[in-house]
């Protein structure tokens, strides 16, 4: 399912809403999560999962093909932990 398919499914389930409003709802949700992560905040959605960010220190990496050393700068990476309910649903049978 892609973002546009998600919007279509929501629009079908909510025929009273304008399509552009459904689009805005989905966009707002993911923008809000992205903004929170950019601030270093955690996003906890019970039953679904939690998004957080982790700090990765600078390190000396290696080009696996040539074996050459390369400096990798420190960075922040997003992280997702699946919620308990969703994890159980994935293994329901």
């Amino acid at each position: 399912m892609t973002k546009s398919e998600l919007i279509l499914r929501l629009a079908e389930a909510n025929p009273h809403l304008f399509h552009r409003d459904v689009e805005r709802i989905v966009t707002t949700i993911f923008d809000e999560i992205s903004e929170a992560l950019a601030r270093g905040d955690r996003v906890e959605l019970r039953g679904f999962g939690a998004f957080s960010v982790k700090q990765r220190d600078a390190r000396t990496g290696r080009n696996p093909r040539t074996g050459e050393s390369v400096a990798v700068i420190d960075k922040i990476v997003p992280f997702f932990k699946t919620g308990k309910l969703l994890r159980e649903r994935l293994n329901a049978d």
Binding site: M1, L10, I25, V26, I29, S34, G47, F48, R89
Partner: peptide, 24 residues
Amino acid sequence: LVETVLDEICDALAQGESVKISSF
């Protein structure tokens, strides 16, 4: 509606479908 969005995503995943949200 926030709940419905999360539910739709969960339903798709529970059916083994992957969910791709562009630029996210």
